[in-house]
Amino acid sequence: MKDKTSNLIRNLINSSNSIVAVLIAFLIGGFMVLLVGESPINAYSAILKGAFGSPTAIRNTVRFAIQVMLMAYSFSVCNRCGYFNISQEAQLYTSALAMVFVSFWTEGLPGPLRLVLMILAAAAAGALTCLIPAVAKFKLGVNEVVVGVMLNYLTKFICQHLIAFSPIAAKRTSSIVSIEIPEHIPVPVITVGAVLIVIAYAFILRSTIPGHRLTVTGKNKQFAQASGIDATKVLLMAAVTGGVLSALCCMGEILGYFHMIYNEFAAGMGTDGMTAAFIGNNTPIGMMFGSLLLGALKSGSVLLSVLTEVPTELIDCVQGLIMFFATIKFFNAAQIDLKRRRVVE
């Protein structure tokens, strides 16, 4: 059997894991919907309609999918080097704050210049925040999950304090938000930008030298160093890239849709990205489909809450279930010897 075909079959088997998982999760979810007294068929048709049933639905799906995808890429880039990037919420808060502060401080400058400065500030803030746990792990030997989780809480409170009391706090609002920033990026630009990022990420990872260095370092650090790759530099570059990707997600959300910092806007975005990364098995295309799935679920649940009486808690449950089953290796391609068509233990 040709190698390419066996590779394809291998990939298909691996991705059928996710499909089976989603099916099981939807089955159990449907059962829970039945318990609530709603019809699962109504519920799922509402989700499908909300995800793909109209141009508005597709717009929502694309928006949420881009959000999740950038976070997934950010997590995956770091994960390849053994750096568990759980501080993504912190990166979102810091890049949001950087953007709004720069916008506030550069009031007199011309529009395009302000936008460029804001983007640079957000990227720098995201990169720095992502570097903190990375440096803690690789230079100080401190577990990066502890540093990451503490950073998440810390930046959340600092963000809340700043949008409540600092010059960027909005006056006369029911809950704490920042001032509105005038800069806008049209949604089509964000969408096309995200597509370009997918292509660029996949390309860089597979076909360029830095991408290869990243993959090799991730697989075996000692081997990489023996081959002359400066592993620490690669790791730090990965952390910087992860931070910049999170910052891009933040930029898309704030410059494209929110135009201000809402209280606790980053809640849950990190875990969504992580889920998509695992569903997609850390491959660029896989993660893209994982994010499409999560984005579709999120935009489907918008219509679900409008058209049915299914409570929002159940939607969270279904999402949790999908996450749960998505990483069970029902079929492990590595264990199937395609040449001799039998299972190898």
Partner: peptide, 16 residues
Amino acid sequence: VNPVICALSINTLVTG
């Protein structure tokens, strides 16, 4: 199952 995903999904499930 990946322990991280399993853990996070348990958290979500229990909350809901």
